[in-house]
Deep mutational scan, measured.
Amino acid sequence: TEIRININGVTIHVRDASEELKKLIEHLLRLGADEKEIREVLHRWEK
């Protein structure tokens, strides 16, 4: 699944996002995570 996240005008594009990762990101956004925090989570997730 491919997702695009727009945070304050900055688009983060994620290829091959699992449903689990998608739910995690949606949850973090609801909690008010910023772009830097989302990128950090994505970076750690890929490892």
Rank of each mutant, 00 (worst) to 15 (best):
H27C: 14
H43I: 12
S18R: 04
I5V: 08
L29Q: 03
L24T: 11
L29F: 10
R44G: 05
I25E: 00
E2H: 10
I7N: 03
E40I: 09
E40Y: 14
E46T: 15
V41K: 03
R44I: 08
R30K: 10
I12K: 01
W45I: 05
R15A: 09
V41Q: 09
E40S: 10
K22S: 10
A33P: 02
H13R: 06
I25A: 01
N8D: 08
H27G: 08
E46I: 15
G32T: 02
T11Y: 11
L29N: 01
E37Q: 10
D16V: 06
I38M: 04
V41A: 12
E2P: 08
R30F: 12
I25P: 00
A17V: 09
E35V: 11
N6L: 11
R44D: 12
L29I: 07
N6A: 10
L24H: 09
N8S: 10
L29V: 06
W45Y: 06
W45K: 01
K36S: 09
I5K: 01
E26S: 15
I38N: 00
D34W: 03
E35D: 09
E26M: 15
I38L: 07
K23P: 01
E26V: 14
V41N: 04
A33Q: 03
G32F: 04
R30P: 00
E37W: 13
K23S: 12
V41C: 05
E46W: 13
R44Y: 09
K47Q: 15
L24M: 12
D16M: 09
E37C: 09
R15H: 14
I7W: 01
H13E: 07
L42S: 00
H43A: 13
L29D: 00
G9A: 04
V10H: 11
R39F: 07
V10W: 01
H13A: 07
R15F: 14
A17F: 06
T11V: 13
R39S: 03
I5E: 01
T11L: 13
E19P: 12
V10C: 06
H13M: 12
V10T: 12
N6I: 10
A33E: 01
V10L: 10
A17D: 04
L31K: 09
D34P: 08
L28R: 05
H27W: 15
R30N: 05
L28M: 13
K23R: 11
D16C: 10
R30Y: 12
L28I: 04
E26R: 15
I12V: 06
T11W: 04
E19W: 15
D34H: 07
I25G: 00
R30M: 06
K23G: 12
R15Y: 14
D34R: 06
V14A: 03
W45E: 02
K23W: 14
N8L: 05
L21D: 00
S18V: 06
E19F: 15
H27R: 14
E26D: 10
I12F: 03
E46R: 15
I5M: 05
L31T: 07
S18C: 03
L29P: 00
E40D: 08
W45F: 07
E2M: 07
L42W: 01
I3W: 11
H27V: 11
T11H: 14
T1S: 11
V10A: 08
I7H: 04
K22I: 14
N6K: 11
D34A: 08
I7R: 04
A33H: 04
V10S: 07
L42F: 03
R15C: 03
D34S: 13
H13Q: 07
V41F: 15
V14F: 12
E46C: 15
I7F: 06
E37M: 13
G9P: 02
K47R: 14
G9E: 05
K36N: 09
K22W: 15
V14G: 02
I38R: 00
L21Y: 02
E19S: 10
A17T: 10
E37V: 12
R15D: 08
G32N: 05
L31W: 09
E40R: 14
L29K: 02
N8K: 07
I5Q: 01
K22Y: 15
